[in-house]
Each structure stands twice: as C-alpha cells, then as structure tokens.
Design a binder for these strands. Sequence first.
DNA 1: TCGCCTTTAGTTATATTATAACGACTGAGA
DNA 2: TCTCAGTCGTTATAATATAACTAAAGGCGA
Lengths: 166, 166
Amino acid sequence: MLSSTAMTDQDPFSPQILALLDRAAAFCATRASRLTDTRRLVLGLILDSSKPVGAYDILDHLRQYQRNAAPPTVYRALDFLLAQGLIHRIERMSAFIGCAHRLECHHGHGCGHRAQFLICSGCGAVSEVEDSEISHAIASAAKKIGFKPHQSTVEIEGLCAICQQG
Amino acid sequence: MLSSTAMTDQDPFSPQILALLDRAAAFCATRASRLTDTRRLVLGLILDSSKPVGAYDILDHLRQYQRNAAPPTVYRALDFLLAQGLIHRIERMSAFIGCAHRLECHHGHGCGHRAQFLICSGCGAVSEVEDSEISHAIASAAKKIGFKPHQSTVEIEGLCAICQQG
DNA sequence: TCGCCTTTAGTTATATTATAACGACTGAGA
DNA sequence: TCTCAGTCGTTATAATATAACTAAAGGCGA
C-alpha cells in the first residue's frame, strides 16, 4: 500500500489512543486477523471522537493521510472492525463508535455482543453499557415465543445526566 | 389532490386491511389529525405486507395509484404515520411495518411506545412484542447512570419458530 | 360567501449512506 | 517459484433520505 498511496503524515493520535490501538493490535494478533494500516487508522479516527462518526466523516479525515481513500476503503475497514467487535454501529445514527468493552476493560476477549447504547439527544454522546438484566429480559422474551435470538440492538435515546441540568 | 393526480384505480385492499384502515381513520379523528388519501394508501400498502417494506418499495406500489408520487410523497406520509404511532421504523432494515398494537388490539389509544421487534433472518418476518420485563430493565439501567430515557429501539435478530424447523 | 391562514401536496434537485465489480498487489506457504 | 487467499485501488452506481420552493386544499371566522 505504501508505494502508491503513501501517507502524507504519520498518524496523529494521542498517547491514550495509541495505547488503545496497541491493545487492538494485540487483540487481532490473538485471532490471526490483520490490523492493517488503513484499518488501524480508521479505528484511531473513531476512537478519537467523543461521538459516533459517520462513514463519510471518517473518509474526510482519512483523506488527510491517504489521498486516494474512497468509500469502499472506509466501508471495508468498518466491516473488518465490526467483525472483530472493535467498533459498534449505532443504527439510529448510521454511525460508528469504538467498543468500550473490547478495548478499555481488562476482561480479555471472550466477551459477548450484548451491549446497549444510551444516546443523548442533547450532546450527541453515546455511552455503552452491558446490562445483564436487559440481556436476560430479551433472551426470556424471545424464548417465550420460540424465537432463537442471535444478536440484538438496543438503543435508548434520551438525556444524559449532564444535559438534564443545562 | 384529485384534480391533477387522480388515482388510476380505487384502493385495492382486502376486507381485513380495510377494517384496519377504518380503525386508523377513527384513531386519527380522535386526535384531530388527518388521514388523507395518500397517507391512508401508504398505510394500507404497509399493512398489506407480511414483512417490513422500504420507502422505495412503497413508492413503486404507490405509483400504481398516484402517477406523480415522488420520494417526498412517501416520506411525508411515513413521517405522519410514525408520528401517530401507526407504523414503526425497523432501524436495522431501513424499513417500515404497521404497529400491531395501535390497530389490532382493543386497548384504545393510550399505549406507550415500548415495543420490541423480533426480526427473523430466515424469512424476513418481523414480529412486534411489548414485553414489560424488557421495558423495565431498560428504564432501570438508564436510571442507574442518571440517564433519562425518552424512546428506545429494541431489535432482536434471529430465527423464528418456523424457520428453526426448516 | 369571502378571505385568510394552516396544512398538505407537487415538483425538482440534491444530499447522504452504502455496495457492485473488476483488476492489481502482497505475503504466506506448498 | 507458483499459487492462493486476502487486501486494496478505482470507477461507477445503488439505495435511502431531505431541501427548497410553489401551489392547492380545507378549516374557520367575519
């Protein structure tokens, strides 16, 4: 990749983000998946944002480092990161956020995909929780009607603690 | 509307759908909202489908009755129907289904928006449930972190009872 | 009935999000 | 070295959704 599409700059991330990217690389290594330069950069850009970012926002930023980046460049990286569980897609926003659980906790990498998202309509921030009551209620409701759940999306829109005061 | 965009046919719905449309009209009357011809037709087309339908599928069908229909025609009707709670949007599919609760039960119109959706990846059917355990778990998880929920999206993907057998 | 105002709809253009398709490069292993 | 799977560049296009402006329709009070 570097021959025809050399970056115009080294990657610009803060030490915190770099640490998360190192974790992500280590995580990928355990699964024999490859966190390539582009994928790493896209992940870094997502982690760098306090809010979910859209694919075309990512593309705009990515182009500062890879002049030739195009929509498929971004969507391929997103597909990979989603498959690894390193990011989540927020359906209501068509946007992407880093997976807090994969990268910030110390549980290792056996975690399920049972996250729920709280979307603040005041500030646009999204927080991820893993609430077992919700997961169990969902599993049990599905079982009641003979439905075999595979994956679930829970997105709660409202006001975060801070925005309720302002 | 009828002058320049006359329908090429009367509406084509089955007696069951017609009954639901009558309920919807009655419901709108109680709220001083107007279920116009276009809105009624769009609602009928949605109710007529066993699966969620996309806006452009609706548009294609709508054009059999209103030659001039364009994307805003459909999206305006959808916005209205969503606001009245007569349909739901399935976020994961960018598609729309009728609200079982508003139209098929006998509870009247005081119902909240606490539905959850089970999406079968086998047959594409979506069923709507209102499970209070899930609602309560969500409310309680939100409260724990000081978040004030306003609306929530719960979409569970998996296999329905029938598709588990095939 | 008339005029006024709000809601609804027609119409054109465009924004936003996502994927198809094909060829070329790369790196690992036979 | 050859081959194969995986990754990426590139172009084009599909699919979903909205902006902006005009016109018509319907309710309502004078």
